[in-house]
Design a protein around this nucleic acid. Structure first.
Lengths: 216, 216
DNA sequence: CGATTATTGTAACGGGCGTTACTGACGTTA
DNA sequence: TAACGTCAGTAACGCCCGTTACAATAATCG
């Protein structure tokens, strides 16, 4: 057999495509979650044996983290850019949430978001991985908040809008969509929820509610 | 030692309080989730040894399901009744979501909802438990939907309101709150999100949006 | 061509999991 | 009091987990 990637160093070259193996690992982790995914299952899906896996990726935790990076850039970089670049706030949020609904139902099996559900309940030994994913979830809220702050400056949100809470609310809804997707919700249903979420955005021009309560 | 519960049958009576042991098991399952909670940890918390546990509760799965029943009646029966009995829709929803925020942060450790996160990612062997909890999550949405249908009849929601999607949206938000709580969000923050969620309720009198889109 | 270096497949390692024999202790019944 | 039935504690079972020796193989370097 010949090497798939050209090697400059000495030694026997690996006979599998590292990037392709990583993508296979991603699918397993996505469907099963971090701890339920076994090394045997990963090896089968990647088409390699344990020593090859450990030589190429370190151990289970580092393989998972690399898979998460791959997941983020492959599936979520574009939606977040869309939220950022679309000038109309409501269009931006609506499209982002609709894209999210598509991503969360993109695999055949019920999946949801790997970052939200991947380490939803893990044993204490996996605390490191759990914390790393929590940091990524925090990034999601920050993305929302920055977008809403810009909208506030642009006059697309009423003065006095609590953008922090608004961002938390959308982030909460986004994470809830993962649970729905994992439970087998159809993409169309997630899209309806995505549309309904736009009602959370207060309209500029209407006075901003001081305490968030509606008129009784 | 004397028996704690009076026995009418023959044989040596058990020396521990079954209900109290169940509550201890609930706390462990709540904090850790179904599979990460080990029998050793459960036995320690319950103050008994494996044979006593198996004699009293069957096995891990049946102990978990019984703990879930106990959890539902102890923590969620009252909030759901509140949603059902409070006549004013917005007050009902607002109070329910606020109560939910309190429940989801009621334990010292980060917890979230046991039904939402308890079997978030499990190995295929625990499919039965996973399915049972999914059915319970479905009940949650049904509760919302019935309440909104009543509100529609009472004129508290505009004619033509998509109550099914509205119920799904609140259910999604509720499940997202569990992820937030598990990530260590403070109760006050969950309460702010709970208040913000009221914006999802369309006001009666304003025309119901035919397609859910806001005015551009 | 040897020497070196990395990868490969097989097979196994220690450890922790859920679960259960087994033996002794205890309270009820006859 | 003697027989019976259930519970308690110790210790172990089989299984599967993530991980790794080990020897064979295949490429590059001198």
């Amino acid at each position: 057999m010949t090497a798939i990637t050209s090697h400059r160093s000495k030694g026997r070259p690996r006979t599998f495509d590292r990037a392709q193996a990583l993508h296979s690992a991603l699918e397993v982790f996505w469907k099963r979650g971090y701890e339920p995914a076994t090394m045997g299952e990963l090896c089968s899906a990647m088409g390699i044996n344990p020593p090859s896996l450990y030589a190429a990726f370190g151990n289970k935790a580092s393989l998972f983290m690399e898979a998460v990076e791959h997941y983020e850039t492959t599936y979520w970089a574009a939606p977040w850019r869309l939220l950022d670049e679309e000038p109309n706030l409501r269009v931006a949020v609506g499209r982002f949430m609709t894209e999210a609904a598509a991503v969360l139902t993109s695999l055949d099996a019920p999946c949801g978001c790997m970052v939200v559900l991947g380490t939803a309940n893990v044993s204490p030994e996996a605390q490191d991985v759990h914390d790393a994913l929590r940091a990524l979830r925090e990034v999601s809220r920050t993305n929302f908040r920055k977008r809403f702050e810009r909208a506030l400056d642009a006059g697309d949100l009423p003065l006095g809008t609590d953008v922090a809470t608004l961002a938390s609310t959308f982030n909460t809804l986004l994470q809830g969509l993962s649970v729905q997707a994992r439970d087998g919700a159809a993409r169309a249903e997630l899209e309806r929820i995505a549309e309904a979420s736009l009602a959370l955005l207060p309209h500029a021009g209407s006075g901003a509610p001081a305490d968030g309560r509606g008129r009784p």
